[in-house]
Nucleic acid binder design. Structure first.
Length: 568
RNA sequence: UGGGGAUUAGUAUAGUGGUAGUACGCCUGACUCUGGCUCAGGUGGCAGAGGUUCGAGUCCUCUAUCCCCAGCCA
């Protein structure tokens, strides 16, 4: 098992595992599992669970974490999801070794367990239809009533259950139920369903079965079969635990310990599988791997690194309190990693043409540019310079506000790695008044980026030589939702879609990037100096048509100053 | 009095009877050929009320608020 930089941390689950190890409860074994249902793509909430379970195993000598697909509902599951889940877990950096399992591997064993319960008079076949069963179940405050089939003989139950397996009945005709207590205050204990009839082919067992165990009947026993020590799951299963305990005790089999923790929530997005599916199926995004999606495939395409996600998961902690983590923490985690590892390049997103009047028309020269100031081993490259360049529209203001240090008429700034320029005139579109071109002069003494007289400039701009630039498309992403807690308004969940951020994607098509990016490989990550981290899109980018995704912008203190000014 | 959970700075978490920490965020400042990074400083918290104790975030009682459960989903 690989152990990607386990960050030592402490939480109540790790404390429990430590205590169990000290007391020898499981003989020093630590065996966990990540148990997804293959009915959708993994998202960053799953990453929290993956890092917890695989991390727990990695932190202990001999620890093991299984990958087990909880594939008990063939109607919703598919190999497409199995494949994507394995890819995503591996991408995150975890390795289940030989411990790949499927609940469907245990169908025969589970059937035997059911038979055992029937023989002991602890389970029965019930003919009630779903609607009737609901009526018999009672409510949260009123006890349920016993099914009329509750007292069938063991022989009759055995016979009926075998007929269920043999395909004698249509979907929904009968179920196998545990005989527990219809008056239990815990509704999970009111004779829950163990097996239902589903005449549906399973993605792994084919047409072998027409009855399938429910999650409740399969999960705990699967953990037991795999000799899991600590079965970590989310809070909503807390009041299922008495049911799982009942099965394990009545079956008299190995008993893992279930521990529940709060699932991850992040502001300005959603980690509801149902909602994510709707966004995909109804076309609000382009797919499960849309870079705006919090899925692992979306984050990957967006440019997030596995390490940044693992670090994020370490930082959010593990507890039982429902909470919403600030998206800023995720963004911090990815900036932290990318700052160390990304080569810097210059790219102009919204080009403004600049003519340097005193620079010879046919001349070109190259300047040495550092690839990564955080990592000298990444070396340097040459960047071509000529008379006509592009700078960022946002880096020029004809009428500069207070604390705006960038270019404006008469002001001198530095072109990164190149020279000082001073703006001498502005060309505007006659009809719109829009600034379309700047004329500047450069100081030949400042070539290389500093002047012998030691005078300072207040700003350094990124730029691209017009003649040498490469065209690119850049996709700017913002929060998927415009509100921190989508769907939390009056109508509650009813219309979380109205909280979608209409500006979550901005496509810029006339960007100019430095020539070194011409051959940039899909998936490669860069810092566009002064702007943010970007990666070459793995789906739409081609040799002649570069497409970049913005992973996350750089922190921008000027934007904050400007924003504060606007608010008064 | 249906059952099960939870409550510590803006956010997320540590603290298991002895000075309430950390991270992110935010605010200052230093540095800087990225208004990035880094560094220094600052901001700000135990849901409430009683009780036990020399001493309570921690133990007890009560209250309040929030979350989950009535699928043949997981």
């Amino acid at each position: 098992m690989s152990t990607p930089d386990p960050v030592p941390s402490s939480d109540f689950i790790r404390n429990i595992v430590e205590d169990d190890n000290r007391s020898g409860k499981y003989g020093g074994r630590v065996v966990t599992r990540f148990p997804p249902e293959p009915n959708g793509y993994l998202h960053i909430g799953h990453a929290k669970s993956i890092c917890l379970n695989f991390g727990l195993a990695a932190e202990h000598a001999g620890g093991i974490c299984h990958l087990r697909f909880d594939d008990t509902n063939p109607a919703r599951e598919d190999v497409e999801y199995v494949d994507s889940i394995m890819e995503d877990v591996r991408w995150l950096g975890w390795d289940w070794g030989g411990h790949l399992y499927y609940a469907s591997d245990y169908f025969e064993q589970l059937f035997d367990y059911a038979v055992q319960l029937i023989k002991e008079g602890k389970a029965y076949v019930c003919d009630l239809r779903a609607q009737e069963m609901r009526e018999y179940r009672g409510t949260l405050t009123e006890p349920g009533r016993d099914s009329p089939h509750r007292e069938r003989s063991i022989e009759e139950n055995m016979d009926l259950f075998q007929q269920m397996r043999d395909g004698e009945f249509e979907d929904g005709a009968r179920v196998l139920r545990a005989k527990i207590d219809m008056a239990s205050p815990n509704v999970n204990l009111r004779d829950p369903v163990l097996y239902r009839i589903l005449n549906t082919e399973h993605h792994r067992t084919g047409a072998q079965w027409c009855i399938y165990p429910t999650y409740d009947f399969a999960h705990g026993q699967s953990d037991s079969i795999e000799k899991i020590t600590h079965s970590v799951c989310t809070l909503e299963f807390e009041d299922h635990r008495p049911l799982y305990d009942w099965f394990l005790d009545e079956l008299d089999v190995y008993h893992p310990q279930q521990i529940e923790f709060a699932r991850l929530n992040i502001s300005y997005t959603t980690l509801s599988k149902r909602r994510l599916r709707e966004l995909v199926e109804e076309g609000y995004v382009t797919g499960w791997n849309d870079p705006r999606m919090p899925t692992l495939s979306g984050l990957r395409r967006r440019g997030y690194t596995p390490l940044s996600i693992r670090n994020f998961c370490d930082r959010v902690g593990v507890a039982k309190r429902n909470s919403i983590v600030d998206l800023a923490l995720l963004e911090h985690s990815v900036r932290e990693d990318l700052n160390q590892t990304s080569p810097r390049v210059m790219a102009v997103l919204k080009p403004l043409r600049v003519v340097i009047d005193n620079y010879p028309e046919e001349q070109t020269q190259e300047f040495e540019a550092v690839n990564n100031p955080e990592d000298p081993s990444m070396g340097s490259r040459k960047v071509p310079f000529s008379r006509v360049i592009y700078v960022e529209q946002d880096d020029f203001r004809e009428d500069p506000p207070r604390r705006f240090y960038r270019l404006s008429p008469g002001r001198e700034v530095r072109l990164r790695y190149a020279c000082y320029i001073t703006c001498v005139s502005v060309v505007k579109d006659e009809t719109t008044g829009e600034v379309v071109e700047l004329h500047c002069t450069y100081d030949p003494e400042s070539l290389g980026g500093s002047s012998p007289d030691g005078r300072r400039v207040q700003a350094t701009l990124h730029w691209v030589s017009a003649a040498h630039s490469v065209d690119a498309e850049v996709r700017l992403y913002e929060h998927l939702f415009a509100t921190a807690e989508p769907g939390s308004g009056e109508d509650d969940d009813a219309d979380y879609k109205s909280d979608l951020n209409p500006d979550s994607l901005t496509v810029l098509t006339s960007c100019k990037v430095e020539p070194s990016l011409a051959e940039a490989a899909p998936g490669s990550r860069y810092q566009f100096e002064r702007q943010g981290y970007f990666c070459v899109d793995t789906v739409d980018s081609t040799n002649g048509n570069l497409v970049f995704n913005r992973t996350v912008p750089l922190r921008d203190s000027w934007a904050r100053i400007e924003q504060a000014g606007k608010q008064g």
